[in-house]
C-alpha cells in the first residue's frame, strides 16, 4: 500500500484546487472541509458505497450520551482509488477503525476521509499527498 500510495502520477479528482491560469477543472471544491487538518475518530464502518463521483462511507461513532451518531464521510472516486490500490473491499461493514477525517466546517456529522487505521495497527492513506505530520517530519 505504501508503494501505491507514494505513486502519484495519476489523474484525479475533487480534492485538488486549480491554479488561476489553468483551464477550469475539478468536480467540487474542498472549501467546506477542514482540509489538511485530520481529526482521528474511532468508530465502526456501517456501509461503503463504491460510487462515482465519490465513494461514501457511513460511519457509526459513539457519542457522549452513550449512543451512536451516524457520520457521512466522503472519499475520493473509484477512478482514482482503484489506481492507487484501494478496492471496494478495502473498508467493510463492521470494520472497527480510527478514521482520520477532514471534518465539515459547519459542525454537522460529516467530512472527508484522509486515512483509516485498522485494529491491527496498519494505516491506509486515502487522499493523495502525505499527511501533514509525515511531510513535516520528512522536511526536517
Amino acid at each position: 500500500m505504501a508503494k501505491t500510495y507514494a505513486w502519484t502520477g495519476l489523474a484525479a479528482l475533487a480534492a485538488l484546487t486549480v491554479a488561476a491560469a489553468t483551464p477550469a477543472a475539478a468536480h467540487h471544491s474542498t472549501a467546506m472541509f477542514e482540509w489538511g487538518n485530520e481529526t482521528p475518530m474511532a468508530g465502526t464502518v456501517e456501509a461503503v458505497e463504491w460510487t462515482q463521483p465519490h465513494i461514501w462511507i457511513w460511519f457509526q461513532v459513539p457519542n457522549k450520551t452513550g449512543g451512536l451518531d451516524r457520520w457521512g464521510i466522503e472519499g475520493m472516486s473509484p477512478s482514482y482509488l482503484s489506481r492507487v490500490g484501494w478496492t471496494k473491499r478495502t473498508l467493510n461493514p463492521g470494520d472497527k477503525i480510527t478514521m482520520g477525517i477532514y471534518k465539515l466546517k459547519d459542525g454537522r456529522n460529516g467530512g472527508f476521509i484522509a486515512s483509516a487505521k485498522f485494529s491491527d495497527g496498519h494505516v491506509v492513506r486515502h487522499v493523495p499527498g502525505r499527511p501533514a505530520a509525515a511531510a513535516a517530519a520528512a522536511a526536517q
Binding site: 502519484t8 491560469a21 493523495p128
Partner: peptide, 17 residues
Amino acid sequence: SAPLPGQDGPRAPPNPV
C-alpha cells in the same frame, strides 16, 4: 493520464498568463 497541480510527475512548464 496527466499529473495534476500538486502531484509529482513530469509536467510542462507553467502556462503563460
